[in-house]
Nucleic acid binder design. Structure first.
Lengths: 386, 386
DNA sequence: CTTAGTTTGTCTATTGGTTAAACTAAGATT
DNA sequence: AATCTTAGTTTAACCAATAGACAAACTAAG
């Protein structure tokens, strides 16, 4: 079967998913409202809602306000019908969270790690996830899946092909985790996950086409077009950290020269700061205490970020660009230079109505993103025809 | 009505479109084959095929080869059920073609122009289109629409907001042409149209994610993701000619510096060639006669093109990059340097299985692209439920 | 308090599509 | 000639959305 064929079951599945989505987004809401908003007939909505009630994906909560007639029955999304686990594997930390189906964090485990060989990290993850599972409250569907964000190149089969900062190559992470926990596992690049997290719960909730810039040790980019993550042919999209912005410029760890992340990343920042500073945090501390040299350093990084963002805007004509990850902590000093660079370089029509924002979720962008992938997957499965 | 709802009519419409698409792509084909390939039931296929026959979008052509039983009835797409007109407005020419529904050019009109004020071009276009209409053969649906490719920024309402090389700003081209000819008109950026043309009929027929580089006086890029043109928020996507590849580099006509097209376009080439050469054609002639200096010039341009293509590949992880428009004529000399630059700079995983090709349609990319847009639009309308 | 009107949600019959299965058509095979 | 195969059509069954009647529960006006 080459292409998608349609029949009554797909119709029902789609409408059911639509109803559920409306309840998730607009709760509290009544059956009548759903019919109104969706364009479906009252009777159709009624029957789909009843199925969703039986599946415990939604619940009723007494009558609402009358608007001149019979009072409506208020419907809610049952966000604790199951729980998702989101994991962010960083260069020196592992962050695991248990979220409900609306991306609220219920339990959080954070662990610093010194070295990152795969077996070590895998066992750390295993321990952390197991303790989340042990502590989680009861629910109809239990743990519906695990999502993992990794700073590296991930293919569509959930293998980490290359994660230079972790020292990983060809790690079958999805296979390993599914074997251990027997639930669906989703592996994503950290920037892609962050983009989805911001789109679902953070700064990007109102927009269709979003480019999320994960500016950390390196730079990765998550591309959301028409509300969907764009992954590319193999899942490798968004490696814009290795976009050349300066021909024959600074050498980059990737072997090329003049890459964006050689100028605008945390790594570049620390390099420029010189020998006596070790961490981004200490630089931020200095800047907060009025150190003009450090502030200028931040401004310079901001300018470089701006060049890359210029390229992004001219390429994608997005609704919004979101700056996230560690460098977003320096918003106070980098925002102005970024905006200036855009103003002076980017095509006028493209600037118009384009929003530039900073991460709304901070260090949780990635975990919430992968958790949202897990939820999305679950909802798609569950809203099948029974 | 915020979102899409589904009912039996949408099912039918989709299935009918699917059947028609299969016939278009795989003709000659029988009803039984369609059922096989699509997964639809024989009876469903039969009834949909009969409707398509009545609409004269397809026709039968006697029995085919038996495969051990009753011989099948062979179905064909009726590519002359109507005709589309495609127009490419260039800096010094206007190209108009009449195509059938499969993108075959039946009549072609080419006219050189000296100056490009809008009223002049509009009247030229009007004359050319009128003569195409007068010469066209009879058919069931006549001229189903007009598509126009323009070298500039086009919004989703079919207005040309800015076309620097034509000297146009805020031209309501779609409105004007629809008023004159009373058929649906589609306006697209020339690179977007070229991308679609190559994907439908040219070098990109086998691929899902294609980036088409229109390298002419300037550089524009058409982005096809999952077989669909990506237009961006306002329709301005793909202005990668103004991607910065060299910080504080050469000034560009856009007001910025270091833009890709300041290094890798026909304009850049002629600038580098110096005062005594006027056209790309004369340079090609020199190169063909063994002029090493000119060949080196081409190689240099190829290298610069490579830098931008590096950025494209790392960003999009596409199936294929296609180089088109005027600079594709210099393939003989620029291909090698492009490939070298990619080899030396682009991330290894991204290079893998990535195809780099040159335009398969030559100067017809744009006209065939807009014509294909018109056809797509028509098919979508016609396969409506009757 | 009564009555009319309105809004919410359900029930029943209808509509319009796909599908299953029987059937006809026309060839190949034995 | 009899049987098997494949192609395509017809008929009835099925299923989901819909239209419209209806009941329940409320507001508003007299």
């Amino acid at each position: 079967m080459v292409t998608m064929t349609w029949n009554q079951q797909t119709v029902k599945k789609n409408n059911k998913a639509l109803v559920l989505q409306l309840i998730m987004e607009k709760e509290p809401i009544s059956r009548a409202d759903i019919a109104q908003v969706s364009g479906l007939h009252k009777a159709t909505v009624s029957s789909l809602v009843n199925e969703l009630l039986e599946e415990e994906l939604i619940f009723e909560s007494g009558p609402g306000e009358s608007s001149g007639g019979r009072r409506p029955v208020i419907l809610h999304f049952n966000k604790v019908a199951g729980y998702a686990i989101g994991i962010d594997i960083g260069v020196n930390y592992v962050l695991c969270v248990l979220t409900d189906l609306k991306g609220n964090i219920l339990i959080e485990k954070n662990q610093l790690v010194n070295r990152t060989p795969y077996p070590t990290i895998l066992s750390t993850v295993q321990t952390m996830v197991q303790s989340l599972i042990d502590e989680k409250p009861g629910s109809r569907y239990g743990v519906i899946g695990i999502g993992v964000g990794v700073p590296g190149i991930v293919n569509k089969e959930g293998s980490v092909l290359l994660a230079p900062n972790l020292g990983w190559t060809n790690i079958q992470l999805k296979v390993d985790l599914e074997k251990i926990f027997q639930v669906p596992v989703i592996i994503e690049n950290e920037a892609n996950a962050g983009a989805f997290g911001e789109q679902q719960f953070g700064a990007g909730q109102d927009y269709q086409n979003i480019i999320y810039i994960s500016a950390g040790i390196g730079i990765g980019v998550g591309i959301i077009l028409n509300k969907d993550l764009y992954q590319g042919k193999n899942g490798f999209s968004g490696e814009m950290g290795h976009m050349i912005i300066d021909i024959d410029g600074k050498p980059c760890s990737c072997g090329s020269r003049g890459c964006w992340e050689a100028y605008a990343s945390e790594h570049a920042l620390l390099e420029m700061a010189g020998e006596n500073t070790d961490t981004l945090e200490s630089l931020i501390h200095q800047a907060e205490n009025g150190d003009e040299a450090v502030k200028n350093l931040f401004r310079k990084i901001g300018g470089y970020l701006g060049y890359g963002i210029n390229n992004i805007i001219n390429t994608f004509n997005p609704d919004q660009v979101i700056v996230g990850n560690r460098l977003a902590l320096t918003k106070e000093w980098i925002e102005e230079p970024i905006r200036n660079t855009i103003k002076n370089h980017t095509l006028t029509h493209h600037q118009h109505e384009m929003k530039l924002d900073f991460s709304g979720l901070g260090k949780y962008s990635t975990v919430l993103g992968v958790s949202a992938f897990v939820v999305e997957n679950f909802i798609k499965e569950e809203s099948r025809v029974l």
